[in-house]
């Protein structure tokens, strides 16, 4: 359903602008990393794209959408995944059932993805008693099971230890390799380098630049991006 085009997109709460007049085109293929300081509007931008928030101005256009509800072709993993009070397997089946899959097909598919994320042996355990890292892997499995064209990831490793972060990154690579477009936000510049192909740099609700990852880190277009890369964080 890609490419995704944002056309003069704005979002404000009351009179406070959060996203201001962003126009950009995101193509199928490359992994897109949305970078920016705290409060820049990264998460809000992602929620707008995913349809969880309605823009106050501008349009979101999925150029490749052939039919129906764009939500059916995308999935999202949140910084803090919400685990339903049921087994790990049932958490994955839940999303598939909502997508209209039969019970039998859902369970087969769910077991497959749990296997891939390394949770097959925990399939029957209540999701809420899993560790933080396991819960995030389960959230990825739940999203991936839906077979989305686009997967949004909002700071998926922000609360995790290095080992768990490594697991999550491997899974994200696998999802990318399977042909799903990755769009994610992160604070972690190392992670951005490891996982990203292109960067959208956001500051104070404005899109500062869209660039291939190499070029962004080598020669950032704005002074703010340069400072952000150096970790000077002048906005704090």
């Amino acid at each position: 359903m890609l490419p995704l085009e944002l056309d003069r997109l704005s979002f404000s709460v009351g009179s406070t602008p959060i996203i201001e007049d962003i126009s950009v085109r995101i193509e199928a293929g490359p992994r897109t990393i949305i970078l920016g300081p705290n409060g820049a509007g990264k998460s809000v931008l992602m929620r707008l794209c995913h349809g969880l928030l309605q823009p106050t101005a501008g349009r979101i256009v999925w150029h490749g959408l052939r039919n129906g509800d764009p939500r059916r072709h995308q999935a999202m993993v949140f910084q803090r995944p919400v685990m339903l009070r049921r087994s790990a397997l049932a958490n994955v089946v839940y999303g598939l059932a909502l997508a209209g899959k039969s019970r039998r097909a859902s369970e087969l598919r769910a077991m497959d993805v749990l296997e891939v994320v390394g949770l097959a042996q925990h399939a029957g355990r209540p999701a809420r008693v899993l560790s933080g890292g396991e819960q995030q892997r389960l959230a990825l499995a739940r999203a991936w099971a839906l077979g989305p064209d686009v997967l949004f990831l909002d700071e998926p490793t922000a609360n995790l230890d290095p080992a768990s972060t490594q697991d999550i990154e491997n899974i994200i690579q696998a999802i990318h390799a399977s042909g799903t477009k990755i769009i994610m936000t992160t604070h972690n510049l190392g992670q951005a380098r490891r996982l990203g192909d292109e960067v959208l740099f956001i500051n104070k609700g404005l899109l500062m630049e869209q660039a291939p990852i190499e070029r962004f880190f080598r020669e950032p277009a704005s002074a703010e991006a340069g400072a952000f890369i150096k970790g000077e964080l002048p906005w704090h």
Partner: peptide
């Protein structure tokens, strides 16, 4: 707590309400 996650998974209001009832049983 559940709002965004459930909407992201495509739950409609009725689905969401049932899920909430079950999860807070």
């Amino acid at each position: 707590e559940y709002d965004e996650q459930l909407r992201s998974l495509g739950a409609r209001r009725l689905n969401a309400a049932m899920t909430l009832i079950w999860d807070t049983r």
